[in-house]
């Protein structure tokens, strides 16, 4: 850590967790600094297991996890500083939302009045309509239940917040509200680790990504850092133009282009190891050759593609 650099909120070193013959986490290493960090990976990647280790629910089989510099296992003092929104839709159906959240606040050591007021404030912050507060949770929609789960995680103002698939079940408006809430929490000083298997869900929320797949950490860094991984590998560029076959011949003559295909009339797909040079080449060709280029895009130019590439090799 260099001078002036913030201390990591989460630190994981050689962390492994297995259940009999099944390896859920395999020698994972990373450090997370304050702010929002996304933990991304397909289902079964080990995200939930990692979050369970970090919240102290389960013990690592090997290696070490530190949250705010402390071991989370069997550490009630640390648990007071941490919020956790689990993936399981496990609310008490026969309770109303404020009572449920207040009950969980009571378990954190709050008095009855403080628990109730914090529960109501958190539910309001999570966007649950006060008109629904008097109803039993059993009658709530999936989105409303998700808001209750998030409210119980933030009601005690945690320093670190773990959210396991928090946007699942929310409509687009709800997602936007939730992203705003996460950003507001981060601005307020809460460090957040949010997991998701859908990249675009978190792409708008944070720039920092941890990519997990098959129990291993595939990549760590900002979106651009991860995207630069692609530069070492073929990158697809789509060109919609009037004479694709002719342009394909010119492109193949250029450096870095590995292959060219014309999947349909008026569309050219080039695979290159030097995307910036190829983009420049296409622009030059369009200007000099008089091609009518109507669209120039890269299907690889978003996080989903990075993820797809890294996961599928």
């Amino acid at each position: 850590m260099t001078a002036g650099e913030e201390a990591p909120v989460l630190e994981v070193r050689g962390l492994s967790r297995w259940y009999g013959p099944v390896i859920a986490l395999n020698a994972v290493n990373f450090a997370v600094r304050p702010g929002i960090t996304a933990l991304v990976g397909p289902n079964g990647a080990g995200k939930s297991t990692l979050l369970q280790v970090l919240t102290g629910e389960i013990r690592p089989s090997q290696g070490r996890a530190l949250v705010l510099g402390e071991d989370p296992w069997n550490n009630p003092a640390l648990a007071r500083r941490v919020g956790n929104c689990p993936q399981q839709d496990a609310l008490y159906e026969d309770m109303d939302a404020p009572s449920f959240v207040a009950y969980l606040m009571r378990l954190r050591g709050f008095g009855a009045a403080a628990a109730r007021s914090r529960a109501e404030a958190a539910l309001a912050a999570a966007g649950l309509d006060p008109a629904a507060w008097g109803r039993r949770v059993a009658g709530y929609s999936k989105g409303m239940r998700q808001r209750v789960r998030i409210a119980q995680a933030v009601a005690h103002s945690p320093e670190v917040l773990f959210l396991d698939e928090p946007l699942t079940g929310l409509d687009p408006v709800g997602r936007r509200e939730m992203r705003n809430l996460l950003r507001a929490l981060a601005e307020g000083g809460t460090s957040i680790l949010v997991s998701s298997h859908v990249l675009h869900e978190v792409e708008g929320t944070t720039d920092r990504i941890l990519l997990l797949h098959r129990a291993r950490l595939l990549a760590e860094g900002t979106v651009s850092e991860i995207r630069s991984l692609l530069d070492r590998h073929p990158h697809s560029i789509e060109v919609a133009c009037d004479r694709p076959r002719e342009m394909a011949a010119h492109l193949m003559a250029g450096a870095g282009v590995e292959s060219v295909a014309v999947p349909e009339e008026g569309l050219l797909v080039a695979r290159t190891r030097t995307p910036q040079e190829t983009y420049a080449h296409i622009v030059r060709l369009a200007a000099e050759g008089g091609y009518a280029v109507t669209r120039l895009s890269s299907p690889d130019d978003n996080l989903e593609a990075v993820f797809r590439y890294l996961v599928h090799g």
């Binding site: 007071r80 050591g109 709050f110 403080a114 912050a125 103002s157 320093e159």
Partner: peptide, 21 residues
């Protein structure tokens, strides 16, 4: 958002013993 107005201070109030939990 009322919770934001609380400033996200970590709770440092009284904490009960395990028995009361």
């Amino acid at each position: 958002m009322p919770i934001l107005e609380q400033g996200y201070e970590p709770y440092r109030g009284p904490v009960r013993t395990g028995g009361s939990r």
